[in-house]
């Protein structure tokens, strides 16, 4: 009785092991077959997003690889850090793409990427993830309206900080009636990111020691479906 139980268990275990080995083998093959292609797709995807903000003709470096990990910062609204992608032409800084978070959206955090040119003007802003009310606060998404393009070319206005508000509060930015919390949050976050850039300009453009752009999902430069 004991023997047969042991034997049966062993048989089952070996059986499962056998299929596991085959499965692992199959997965390994597929992984190696698709790895380069996936990395390439991810790179193109990031580049596509970045080139919406900084025209790809204006830089000549490998911008996705020329990344720097940034520590969490209150001005960027990041709590786990973020990545800065640097654009250079003939090794001269052209601009930087920063990840930032607007923590005070109507329903939570709004993740942004913000391109700032070397002279401190905005190349553009995009929302990569948000939970704003569909049809009401989601006009910050480029897929829904071109509101976000209102930031293009703007820069800090040290003499007149009040400009960095929505028109309802006396600033220069449009908003849609009925949904002012969302644009307020985005305007505030972009304003702070510009201040961050002004404070950290030199460090941001520092050349990398053999770069290790943090891999995978963390990069966050990823079009969201939400």
């Amino acid at each position: 009785m004991r023997r047969t139980l042991v034997k049966a268990s062993l048989h089952t275990a070996l059986n499962v092991l056998f299929f596991t080995v085959i499965g692992t083998f199959l997965l390994a093959i597929t992984f190696f077959q698709t790895r380069d292609r996936i990395a390439q797709s991810e790179q193109t995807e990031k580049l596509k997003l970045i080139s919406q903000l900084i025209p790809s003709s204006s830089f000549d470096n490998d911008i996705v690889a020329d990344a720097q990990h940034l520590a969490p910062d209150a001005l960027l609204g990041t709590t786990t850090g973020g990545t800065a992608y640097r654009a250079r032409l003939h090794d001269q800084p052209v601009g930087v793409v920063l990840e930032a978070v607007a923590p005070d959206g109507y329903s939570g955090r709004i993740s942004l990427i913000i391109a700032i040119k070397a002279d401190g003007t905005l190349g553009g802003v995009r929302v990569v993830e948000h939970k704003e009310t569909p049809g009401l606060g989601d006009y910050i998404d480029i897929a829904k309206s071109d509101w976000i393009q209102g930031f293009d070319g703007k820069s800090l206005t040290p003499q007149h900080d009040a400009d960095w508000q929505v028109k309802k509060d006396g600033g220069q930015f449009d908003y849609m009636a009925g949904a002012t919390i969302t644009p307020r949050a985005v305007v505030k976050a972009v304003h702070k990111a510009l201040q961050y850039f002004a404070l950290h300009r030199t460090e941001l453009f520092m050349q990398n020691s053999p770069a290790s752009p943090d891999k995978g999902r963390r990069g966050g430069v990823k079009e969201s479906t939400k």
């Binding site: 597929t30 292609r37 995807e45």
Partner: peptide, 9 residues
């Protein structure tokens, strides 16, 4: 894997 590689979007 295949979808990630060939139809990434």
């Amino acid at each position: 894997f295949a979808m990630n590689a060939y139809v990434h979007a």
